[in-house]
Amino acid sequence: MNIVVCIKQVPATTEVKINPETNTLVREGVESIINPFDMYAIEEGLRIKEKVGGIVTVLTMGPPQAETALKEAISLGCDEAVLVSDRAFAGSDTLATAYTLARSIKKIDDFDLIICGKQAIDGDTAQVGPGISEELNIPCVTYVKKIEKIEDDKICVERMMEEGYAVIQLPIPCLITVVKEINEPRLPSLRGMMKAKKAQITILNAADIAAENNRIGQVGSPTLVSKIFAPPFKGEGEMILGDVGEQVEKLVNKLKETKVI
């Protein structure tokens, strides 16, 4: 089975702050990681490969530095790595990204299953996975928490819903996005790390994937970020002092005022 896992390199969010004066991201010393949800996608791809055979290709779109994310994926056991990188992709929104990745997947050639994380922790949009499936005109199921069965021509998955889960069968080729319940990602192995060090990463640019100019980068992006700002500051909270009895008394009165309780 040919599996393509789409990943994204993101800043480790806990450290991302906005400078309240300049309204820009503070990025000093911010470490780049593979989007945590994509780690589950990689793991699921590897597990499927270990079960039914095949190869796992990991794909990302990003600046040249994103190569480190691909190498990490190789250290975990992925076989091939493709970086789609071109200045022409600058300013891509989710639609342009989905288009670019879909074009790249076509270039990769035969694929049976595409796996994405449910969303990236920097954008939190969850749009690229379904977008890719639409561009490739293949079926897609999001929020998969379990793959029940894999056959040559179809798979059966459990999609997490608000009130439980749906059991859905999809024909192959198809795309799924996965949630953290699906597995526990492995750590790299020493041999994997050695392999990653030597690994050749395929780099594709806009011409390589025969992208239409008006569908990539800023031009191909319907949405525009018009403003970025820090969330409104909540202001100093009030510490309620006194002994336990007094604290409780005061708090209950405050909460009663809200008329919610």
């Binding site: 750590l187 790299p188 192995s189 020493l190 790390m193 050695m194 060090k197």
Partner: peptide, 19 residues
């Protein structure tokens, strides 16, 4: 060596995440 650095890094990861 680079390999020795890798061993350290990997062992640290396992210690932090698994142990």
């Amino acid at each position: 060596s680079e390999e020795q650095q890798m061993i350290k890094e990997l062992a640290k990861k396992i210690a932090e995440e698994k142990m």
